[in-house]
């Protein structure tokens, strides 16, 4: 059974292709956009920068080869979620095209010129004011999704995009799960091992608070440059998460009490005790947030590095 928008039964390939065609716009995408350069690649495909032939703008296109997608029905999820959910902290969906001859799917999104948060966390040092600002923006996006009973399930710095003016947006909704109500749960292990919550790695039923745990791991990225256990194999990392629970924070004594408490509230192993987005949006740590424009020097430095 797959986790998709609604609880989808096992769709046949034809049904999936028909679903994608229904969601896609007509016309030939390769004649409407000029591909400029490759921006990156991930599990589901490559992302390229492109220019519409009839407009002076820049877009990002995620190109997915339909023949080697582990879970094609998740592509339908991604498009449905991005089409329906509009929020200032969620990457804007523009269009999508189904290229039957190449068996490819193109998802056209807004382009953020600052790149992924990963480059900033690995190449620069963020202060607590900047960490608070990024955390607040991500929490606003998560609050919006959770309110609609949707879990992201893959929160990490790679899926947080930045604009040169400091805008912060969440992306990559291919692994979203729709819960059928507040108490509904999921069990499929989805996400990236180093960011997974204990209840996910131990294959228990989980809910929206898995995103809160991953947010906590992302804050560790902003502090230390990478998530805990990244020097280990994914399997060992999963074992450590399942057995150790809350990871150690290096130089914890240097952190402010507000940040320490904020982290503790995110990285609480017991799901019922773990904070939700509403509580964290009221947390004292976010009052330390500096203006988003202070991210610009970090983005420039990361690009140069």
């Amino acid at each position: 059974v797959t986790d998709g928008m609604a609880k989808k039964k096992n769709l046949t390939d034809d049904e999936i292709h028909a679903g994608l065609q229904r969601l896609a716009s007509p016309g030939d995408a390769s004649s409407k956009y000029q591909i400029q350069k490759k921006l990156g690649s991930g599990a589901s495909g490559n992302v390229c920068m492109a220019k519409p032939v009839d407009a002076d703008a820049v877009v990002a296109i995620k190109m997915m080869d339909l023949n080697n997608q582990p879970k094609k029905e998740l592509l339908i999820t991604e498009i449905e979620v991005m089409k329906d959910y509009k929020h200032p902290n969620i990457v804007n969906f523009l269009d999508c095209y189904y290229l039957s001859e190449k068996q490819e799917l193109w998802v056209v999104m807004e382009y953020l010129d600052g790149g992924a948060l990963t480059d900033v966390v690995t190449e620069t040092i963020m202060n607590e004011g900047q960490i608070a600002a990024v955390s607040r923006e991500c929490l606003q996006a998560l609050d919006y999704l959770h309110e609609k009973h949707c879990i992201h399930r893959d929160i990490k710095s790679d899926n947080v995009l930045l604009g040169m003016n400091g805008t912060v947006k969440l992306t990559d909704f291919g692994f979203c799960a729709q819960l059928s109500g507040d108490s509904a749960k999921r069990q499929t292990m989805v996400g990236t091992p180093y960011w997974m919550a204990p209840e996910v790695v131990s294959r228990k039923h989980y809910g929206k608070k898995v995103d809160i745990w991953s947010m906590g791991i992302m804050i560790i990225e902003m502090l230390e440059g990478e998530p805990p256990y990244l020097n280990e194999t994914p399997l060992k990392a999963i074992y450590r998460i399942a057995t150790k629970g809350k990871p150690d924070i290096k130089n914890a004594e240097k952190l402010s009490p507000e940040l320490k408490d904020f982290l503790d509230r995110c990285l609480e192993v017991e799901v019922e005790k773990r904070a939700d987005t509403q509580e964290l949006l009221q947390h004292k740590f976010l009052t330390k947030a500096r203006p988003l424009t202070t991210l610009r020097p970090l983005i420039v430095a990361a690009k140069q590095a």
Partner: peptide
């Protein structure tokens, strides 16, 4: 080694090859 490092950050659905 670089390719394995990059693959560590890939998203998994259900179970991965190393499980």
């Amino acid at each position: 080694k670089k390719r394995f490092q990059r693959k560590k950050r890939y998203t998994i659905v259900g179970s991965a090859y190393w499980m």
